[in-house]
């Protein structure tokens, strides 16, 4: 049986997933959940597959009503969560009865929250992804009165079971501070900045209010390019740190245009991008240099924690008879080496 939810207060929310990985070859950015760790965790906690459609809520309060019994999980930025008026916990599966309202308020540390619903959400896809693309005008931006269909409804679950200590089994909740430490590796064009490239690691930067899913603008002491030849347009990676103007540093995020002509000073690591996804205007950012090998190891450790979480959730859901078969995803060989 499918379920339904009704959006009462959309705030700034969209239906998204882990992104359009086939997009860049067609000139479309990857887009998708900016905080990939929190989005994956939400889906895992809701018994979904990692890439299932879910709701990304940015900064503003959000409220929805379940018209059937459903099971949800909320992750990402810390916030005040109530279900049917009862205070509820983030980073846990929560049973919502038909007619109850889910309310999300007070995102003031961190910026983005993720709400996954067991059975996920029906939404149109473009190149295999539901992620919104503001440039081509695709995606499901939620409005007051939007009705979302889920592929499953879940009968009320006796709450005590969810007091099982899921999270002592290894899931780390990301820290959300107003002082962010972001790991980067040297960019392909680091040599073009000469000695001034080191400023990136000795200065502190402030997040500008003009930041969005395309890129974050950071004010502070700027490295300067020593060469000034015209650069041919070329593919730029998500996470590219550029100095396009004399005023701000630009860090490209998942909505970035696929090609550009600015030299790439540094590239934010996969885990660093999750940190930046939660940066609020005014937050302070410091960069720390790492290597690709180290960044990959960190990223794989973090993913391994999510795999542990998946096992725990499958066990609990199995015991409760919640209607999903265990969804094992074998870790690929490369991740174990």
């Amino acid at each position: 049986m499918s379920g339904e939810i009704l959006i009462q207060q959309p705030g700034n929310s969209v239906v998204t997933d882990l992104g359009r990985t086939r997009g860049p070859r067609f000139g479309l950015p990857v887009n998708g959940a900016l905080d990939q760790y929190s989005a994956r965790a939400a889906n895992i906690l809701a018994g979904n597959q990692d890439n299932h459609p879910l709701v990304e809520i940015t900064a503003l309060d959000f409220r929805m009503k379940a018209t059937t019994d459903i099971l949800i999980a909320v992750t990402g930025a810390p916030l005040t969560l109530t279900v049917g008026g009862r205070p509820s916990s983030q980073w846990e599966p929560i049973s919502v009865r038909a007619g109850e309202t889910v309310s999300i308020r007070g995102i003031n540390r961190g910026l983005r929250a993720y709400l996954a619903i067991h059975g996920s959400i029906e939404a149109e896809t473009l190149l295999g992804s539901v992620a919104p693309d503001t440039v081509v005008g695709f995606g499901l931006q939620l409005k007051e009165g939007t009705s979302l269909l889920t592929r499953k409804s879940v009968g009320p679950v006796r709450q005590p079971y969810f007091d099982l200590p899921l999270f002592r089994l290894g899931l780390e909740r990301p820290r959300m501070d107003s002082d962010l430490l972001v790991d980067v590796t040297d960019g392909p064009d680091v040599a073009e900045f000469g000695a001034s490239g080191e400023l990136l690691f000795t200065s502190e930067y402030a997040v500008s209010g003009r930041s969005n899913h395309i890129g974050l603008r950071l004010g502070g002491e700027l490295p300067e390019r020593t060469s000034n030849g015209e650069v041919l347009s070329r593919g730029v990676p998500v996470g590219a740190v550029e100095v396009p103007s004399r005023e701000e540093l630009l860090v490209l995020h998942r909505g970035r245009g696929v090609t550009a002509g600015y030299p790439v000073l540094a590239v934010v690591t996969s885990t660093g991008l999750d940190v930046l996804a939660q940066a609020r205007p005014g937050d302070k950012v410091r960069f720390r240099k790492t290597t690709v090998a180290e960044a990959t190891a960190t990223h794989r450790r973090s993913r391994a924690q999510l795999e542990t979480l998946r096992e725990s959730v499958n066990t609990v859901f199995g015991l409760l008879g919640i209607g999903c078969r265990p969804q094992w995803q074998d870790l690929p060989v490369a991740a174990c080496s």
Binding site: P24, G235, T296, A334
Partner: peptide, 25 residues
């Protein structure tokens, strides 16, 4: 190849994107 997301070729360069969980650089 598993883990390769795709390639973005332009004039004289191509950006090759991959999933670092599945393959290494």
């Amino acid at each position: 190849a598993e883990g390769l997301h795709g390639a973005v070729p332009t004039y004289d360069s191509v950006l090759v994107e991959f999933d670092p969980i599945l393959v290494s650089a």
